[in-house]
Design a protein around this nucleic acid. Sequence first.
DNA 1: AAGAACACCAACCGCCGTTAC
DNA 2: GGTAACGGCGGTTGGTGTTCT
Length: 275
Amino acid sequence: MVMAPEETRKGPWTEQDDLQLMCFVSLFGDRRWDSIAKVSGLNRTGKSCRLRWVNYLHPGLKRGRMTPQEERLVLELHSQWGNRWSRIARRLPGRTDNEIKNYWRTHMRKKAQERKRGICRPPSSSSSNSLSPTSQDSTSVVTNSLAESHLMMEGSLHENGVNINSTTDGDLDLEEVAKGYYSMDEIWKDIDQLMEEDVSSGSGGQVYDEGDNQQGRKEEEDGMCSSSFSLCPQTPLMASPPSWNYCSDSLWRMDDQENIKIWLPIINDHFVSKY
DNA sequence: AAGAACACCAACCGCCGTTAC
DNA sequence: GGTAACGGCGGTTGGTGTTCT
């Protein structure tokens, strides 16, 4: 049979996509994005998956407006490092380079406009950097809280990587994987193999219809991802980022064990049990 | 109330460095 | 050592929601 050539999907992510990606990242870690992209059946590029994870799904992400401390830190660090967004982002736990970049862009645009309108006061003589917060309204905040913000940052700096090793009752002991009993490389190799097999048998690489992920998706006896995800719990799916934020947050943070309980059997069935 | 302007954010693109083969 | 694949980064764009006129 001839499979229609699948075009890599682009554009907005659906809730289903997100869940799917989270599931696979939780199992395989946030590396090997191309493989994750393939294995997950998302039909997106690895880059796209990575971006989605880093900028949106990562459990440690903060949401909402920047605090004055953060704003100040961004200003400070930008004056030091320029547009090294990812570097700056590392100093602001929970904020992504994209977020900071966007913030800065907006911020600078506003500034430029103010300047244009002559609202901005001339820069103080002490500053050689036109971008530095010399004449800004937030100056007071800016000047007194460096130590404070650094302290805050330190507090939350421990990386919020995906903790998948605390499962106690999943069939797969991810801890073992982590310990190296099963190397991820081995697993990936096998997955790659599986994917090839699935493709050649015509059952793999299936992608849900956009817009109708649930219905009409018939269980394929062997389709790991497809069938797996039809088994996925009907999580109170989120209609908007804020609610999703809550969900993803809770999915990850509140109870990894629950999360693992939910997802693990699914993956186990198909390819993990063999390890 | 409607349209324009603005602000915010998600996502893509292209380049570059690193790694594996 | 050469090359391809991958991942990360910064720049940019486009969509959507909000505020202003």
